[in-house]
Nucleic acid binder design. Structure first.
Lengths: 222, 222
DNA sequence: CGAAAAAAAACGGACGTTCATTTTTATTAA
DNA sequence: TTAATAAAAATGAACGTCCGTTTTTTTTCG
């Protein structure tokens, strides 16, 4: 028969990758066989090889696609942060990160597969130079906040913002994947308040705190 | 021949488990074969089965042993923390966590294997109720600090201490396993200072800060 | 028809585990 | 002190199954 349309091919590869991803994250890469994948995707074993040359290439294709999706999500999240060191925005960042972790926990499991079985070759760039990247996005805001005297003297906002971002991620990952059910002894909401407070009080000057207290929700910057 | 001595058996199982652990963390559980293990341990394939009934049981034995080792390490680390919310002690905690991660990165890779290939069944208890455990260890110290007015009003020290502990862990794990080379844009030393400062300023009251500033190293509580 | 796609069969090798066999060595008897 | 014993330990071939991939065959449809 004639060549399939782009859309038809995309439909088939999506089916295969969806099946593979579900299996990979449930039992790991090496514990998943091509027969498992073909069965779950309802595609014959031989036909899978009409779309992917190797099993590895399925994994790589899944990751490449997912990295792009996550990149878009992160861009959206950061675009919503206009004043990065403002407590309300910090908390909003935390909420967004929480949603991202819960809706895309697959992604992080794939990262662990990559660390374990592929020496982290596909995800290396995830954290490398992350602070510099935040400096590129928010550098001007950081400088403005410092100039206004919102930050304590000597505080560099970039690593602090990165640390907050990482802390939020770590919190929700532990909750979602590592069995820490409310490991801070607080609800997610309270935990977000608690962490936001730490980073707000940890970096803002008296003036900065006073300024933000006027506008911010009392619950997390009381 | 008669039964081997306890010590001889222990020696053999140690050899097997060492080999297995090295392979598991380098290529994952399912990617490691019993033949790989027996070859690296210089024990015949059949003989491995005189000590372990299945491949799974090797993994479980490694984890059981390692959990005990880590428990001891953590106990030692916490025993050295007499005043948990004092910045100098917080930083020392961070240093200890850093050493623990670097000297036992195997342990955390095993945890990722467990999450991926065993639904985290062996490590569940690692984070479950961790804040309550800290409350048991340091509850009296937390209460005393609050009574002395070292903490800002309304601050519960337990989740903050937990958050600091988790942040230190996460920082060093990202550095060691996830390819974030100096992902905060700082040396490990500077990063510890930065994180310590955040948690100190994030939770201590004016009086608490003033008190600790007298005794603490200026580098991280300036 | 004919070429692309799908399915099925086949390939060589590796898997976890078992088992018959050989080697080892603490104990026993001389 | 030494030689025989016997049971534990060690071995590596063998078992049946499953692996990733390739090749062959069948189906599909312009």
């Amino acid at each position: 028969m004639p060549k399939l349309s782009e859309a038809a091919i995309r439909g088939k590869t999506d089916t295969i990758e969806d099946a593979a991803r579900e299996l990979f994250i449930r039992q790991g890469f090496h514990a998943t066989s091509m027969r498992d994948i073909s069965k779950r995707a309802k595609v014959s074993l031989g036909n899978v090889y009409n779309y992917y040359p190797t099993k590895d290439s399925i994994f790589e294709s899944i990751i490449d696609g997912y990295l792009k999706v996550m990149d878009e999500h992160l861009k959206t999240i950061f675009a919503e942060v206009d004043e990065p060191m403002e407590p309300g925005n910090l908390r909003k960042l935390g909420e967004s990160v929480g949603r991202l972790v819960h809706e895309h926990s697959d992604f992080w499991l794939l990262m662990y597969i990559d660390v374990l079985e592929f020496q982290n070759q596909h995800f290396r760039k995830m954290f490398d130079g992350i602070t510099d990247r935040f400096r590129k996005i928010f550098g001007k805001r950081f400088a403005e906040a410092a100039a206004r005297g919102d930050l304590r003297t000597g505080v560099d906002a970039a690593p602090v913002f990165t640390a907050a971002y990482m802390q939020f991620f770590n919190y929700f990952l532990v909750e979602k994947l590592f069995g820490g059910n409310q490991h801070l002894g607080l609800s997610d909401d309270q935990a977000l308040n608690c962490l936001t407070k730490i980073f707000a009080y940890g970096t803002l000057s008296e003036e900065g705190l006073a300024k933000f207290k006027k506008t911010a929700n009392k619950a997390f910057i009381a």
